[in-house]
Design a protein around this nucleic acid. Structure first.
Lengths: 209, 209
DNA sequence: CGGTCATGCGTACGAGCGTACACATCCCGA
DNA sequence: TCGGGATGTGTACGCTCGTACGCATGACCG
């Protein structure tokens, strides 16, 4: 006997229009307990939010459900288990970041502009990157332990390099990509802020065959 | 009512020599339930082992206690709470790695030998680094979220740079250290193994003012 | 030798967890 | 109109967890 099981997630039942027939086609925007087409996507976003806040260590079905405003039972209905939810969530995260990365370099038209873009990327990203920094390191941690997450990081890195490829030769893209990673992490985990000039110098050196 | 609380951690009591007076000075090597001078250190080592195996996410007092062969009550006796245990454990880990790093470069006598040492470091470390890779990313994850861990990573990075400082000018040590970080992570999380020649080329470029 | 007190430990409690599963609800064909 | 199948949800069970705390133990002093 727990006597405590009825938690905030479920109970309430949000009366609203209990038996209302409602418009047959439904107004698309009005999601209800029963009709809620993009619930799955919302769960994924909520999961990423929760991970960013309390870490993979602190994630639970209940927290994610509460954040997504979804009944607890929905979690295991849409995702087999916690592992799958994490995997799917990080897939979406990696895709989002990689896409932005690609677009960032799409504006460059030559090697010099690409170099400038790299510097800008590192320093711009740092401004509001708390969430992304945390999610990135959480993903790396998972990847360090479980191979099934490693394919994810692997694909992500491949996309990053492909974005640099138009401007530099193949070996250089590898080196540059690794340098970006290192600068990014050190900048994020160091207390002294990075100097833009120093970053620019690093990029210049690594891209000068 | 749980009825399940008596878990493997405690019970047993390992009879051995229950009331034995033992040698007054104690044979140093024979730790007993009561006399166990380096218990604290053993708990820390056990904690790192457990973290490496199941991640910060999966760590618990009970698992660490079992691994260290220590009663559960000992955990909160020696450490105020889980957070402190993690902090102390990662302090030890960072110190261990940084010390090895310093010794690794102490053998070099000039810039060229230092460059070779860098390449060797990245490729040697990768061989048996599963444990260290995991612990490192776990630490970064913690540092990304909690400032009190960031001072730890920060000191670690400072020591690393100091180890490089005898061979390169100040800005270069920053760049080289970041490059090492990036190469290391990418090598670890990529599926294709890194090529030694490529690493050497990266080091050459970044250290050529 | 006997009493006292710091040290260290076993155990129980209450909370939070993942997940299974009976059941409510809705949709749709007849 | 009605019945049956599909879809989604509330809730309970069996666990593990961190931590508080009363008590056993052995050292030490008189």
């Amino acid at each position: 006997m727990d006597g405590m099981d009825a938690d905030a997630t479920s109970s309430g039942a949000t009366p609203g229009s209990p038996g209302s027939p409602g418009t047959p086609a439904a107004p698309a925007t009005a999601r209800s307990r029963r009709f809620d087409p993009d619930r799955r996507a919302r769960i994924i976003d909520a999961a990423l939010d929760v991970i960013a806040e309390v870490g993979v260590a602190g994630v639970s079905h209940r927290k994610v459900a509460a954040r997504a405003d979804v009944p607890l039972g929905s979690m295991t209905y849409h995702f087999d288990d916690m592992d799958q939810l994490l995997r799917v969530s990080f897939e979406k995260f990696a895709d989002t970041i990689a896409t932005r990365y690609e677009q960032w370099f799409r504006q460059a038209t030559n090697a010099d502009e690409a170099r400038a873009a790299v510097v800008g990327l590192i320093h711009a990203d740092l401004l509001d990157s708390q969430r992304e920094l945390v999610l990135t390191t959480e993903l790396y941690t998972l990847a360090a332990r479980k191979p099934e997450f490693r394919t994810l990081t692997c694909d992500w890195m491949a996309r990053s390099r492909r974005a640099l490829r138009p401007f530099f030769d193949e070996p250089t893209t590898h080196l540059l990509d690794a340098l970006i990673e290192g600068l990014f992490i050190h900048a994020a985990l160091d207390t002294t802020p990075p100097e833009r000039a120093r970053t620019a110098e690093a990029v210049r050196r690594i891209t000068s065959g």
